[in-house]
């Protein structure tokens, strides 16, 4: 006679990946990945209860408003959506957030920032893209600068970063520029990711694994 024991049947979200696997590939510990899973479950069920983060849910979490969008939130969502299927799965969430971990190598942050700013996926940051991003920031911040000043800022930046002078910033030029100007990577690190379980005790779950 067959014997089946079912002490705990844990139903995970679609796209769930084992914390031990994700911890081995990222800057997070196993218990931190488990804590992130608690956060992920909240975010991914805030509107559509399918265990996947849709863009509206991402916007709701970022802005407290499901309909508010901005250029950078769209870009970050697209970069988190590694499979390019319009939703963020748990593994994608953890791997992408890991870029922002203080212990993640600077080179990874530089590469991620380049992809973020390469709006049209041409492999370069082009002048028009940079201007578009500056205008988006100004619009978002309710700051007004005349077109002339925006042109000055963009021109000045290209003078410093576009070493070949071909009107576009390639990944090597970006890397060099970012290393010379560390403040550019400030938004690529979230200090509290270093110990999520301390910073966000509400996400702490009883881990069965000792890190």
């Amino acid at each position: 006679m067959g014997c089946f024991t079912s002490k705990h049947v844990i139903k995970h979200t679609p796209g769930y990946e084992e914390p031990t696997v994700l911890a081995s590939e990222t800057s997070f510990t196993v218990s931190e990945v488990e804590a992130l899973y608690e956060l992920f479950k909240k975010l991914s069920s805030s509107i559509i209860k399918d265990g996947l983060i849709h863009k509206e849910e991402f916007q709701l979490a970022l802005f407290r408003n499901r309909n508010k969008r901005n250029l950078f939130a769209d870009r970050i969502f697209d970069l988190f959506d590694l499979k390019r299927n319009g939703v963020i799965e748990f593994g994608e969430f953890v791997r992408s957030l890991s870029i922002f971990h203080p212990n993640t190598p600077e080179a990874d942050k530089i590469a991620f920032a380049f992809k973020l700013y390469d709006l049209r996926h041409t492999g370069y940051i082009e002048r028009e893209e940079l201007k578009e991003m500056v205008l988006a920031i100004l619009n978002e911040s309710d700051l007004f600068l005349s077109n002339e000043f925006v042109e000055i800022i963009v021109d000045k930046t290209f003078t410093q970063a576009d070493l070949k002078g071909d009107g576009k910033i390639n990944p090597d030029e970006w890397e060099e520029f970012a290393k010379k100007n560390p403040s550019l990577l400030k938004n690529m690190t979230l200090p509290y990711l270093k110990d999520i379980t301390m910073a966000f005790p509400s996400f702490v779950v009883n881990s069965e694994v000792d890190d």
Binding site: N70, V134, N187, L190
Partner: peptide, 26 residues
Amino acid sequence: EQPTSMNAFELISMSQGLNLGNLFDH
């Protein structure tokens, strides 16, 4: 610091639109 004294990427990196911290504020 005046916006015009920064380079464009510095301006962008200060953007609240890039602040992922709100994801954790639940």
